[in-house]
Design a protein around this nucleic acid. Sequence first.
DNA 1: ATGGTTTCTCGACATCGTGTCAAAAACAAA
DNA 2: TTTGTTTTTGACACGATGTCGAGAAACCAT
Lengths: 213, 213
Amino acid sequence: MFLTLCQILLEEQHLRPREFDHDDVLRIAFDQFWRKGVRGTSLSDIARDAGVQRGSLYNAFGSKEALFLQAYERYAGDYLLGLQKALGTGSLRKRLTTFFELTIANFRSGSPPRGCPTTRGLMELGAAEGEGLDEEARQVFASLVSRITALVQDTLSAGARRGEFNGNPAVAALHIITVTRGLAVLERAYGDEAQLRKIAAHTIDLVLDKKGG
Amino acid sequence: MFLTLCQILLEEQHLRPREFDHDDVLRIAFDQFWRKGVRGTSLSDIARDAGVQRGSLYNAFGSKEALFLQAYERYAGDYLLGLQKALGTGSLRKRLTTFFELTIANFRSGSPPRGCPTTRGLMELGAAEGEGLDEEARQVFASLVSRITALVQDTLSAGARRGEFNGNPAVAALHIITVTRGLAVLERAYGDEAQLRKIAAHTIDLVLDKKGG
DNA sequence: ATGGTTTCTCGACATCGTGTCAAAAACAAA
DNA sequence: TTTGTTTTTGACACGATGTCGAGAAACCAT
């Protein structure tokens, strides 16, 4: 995967070029994975959708899991960028509201809603060989969670400097992230978007130190 | 599944009885599913472990998913009973602390930790045919979540009557449940039990209206 | 006890998905 | 054109799910 990235960056195509676009396939694959789950998507499906032979996918990406991970990393980068952009303005309450809105909108997108790819990926992690979870996949998912947590913490710290928040930004950010992960789970359980929004609003009230009703 | 239950309850075994114990297989199967994930467990594994032929499992339970669901329901019943028993005594803070402790202990059990079966099950839900999630499985998982939520809500209501809580029990219970689901996700991401406990303690502080540090 | 009926068991089979491999095809460079 | 390398392509092996039918086993009735 890292090798492939280097090859792309350095344009080191000395010989026969690929007959399909690497990024197109990544997008198509992620869309399928997101709609039908990693488990429910076969490489044949992706190959058909992308107009590529199944063997070519193995040649280009290595395995189904490797393909998913690369597709996921592309998604994660885009998603984090969108969050950063949206969290740049307004009062702290406004920013947190936007954060929850974007989060919920993300895993309520599609019909039927596709859920949160990160949470789904994390919970599908299996024991690799004998002991321990699949480390590579775990790190990829955990990385996005960490970066979003840092983003929220920064937002809270800035709010604290402006007198809009008087708690511990690190702990509060962890709490908020935990709530968003929990919302991703409840979304699967009930599919009731109004309920999700209610919980989000209540969480903001708690964090900003107003009594929740 | 419902039929099988009726058969058990009514003891309607007119003819040749089964050669293996229904509940034993359910327990063995759930242990495997929990350790290796539904995806990572084959019916051959379970059949070997239980000393039963694979075909007999199909005959008795119908399919892999049906077997899992029945095994899960057995687990869910036991788990809820344990929670109810543990939440019967002490101050509201003590009860909530116990609740989070049991929750974390549950998905930190085993080595490596097996995670939360309910959350894993919910996030693995796939679209069934064309549209919509697998309804039957969704309801089974959501049912346990609902019942735990009700349990927490009752605990909060009782606390409110004793003057230990002055918020809205329904909303607060939803919030607490959301946090526990989020903890189940973070457990997969980081595997840091101390962090989980910190978030739990902070959540209790927020709900009981003390400033979290 | 014995026969008949029902159910369970067990092995064979079909199907699908993953992953591997080797040969063919296609392209760049000499 | 020739050489060398990579991609493509189809065939293959393997494992898992799920179905089916024949045979074995157990129970009821006579």
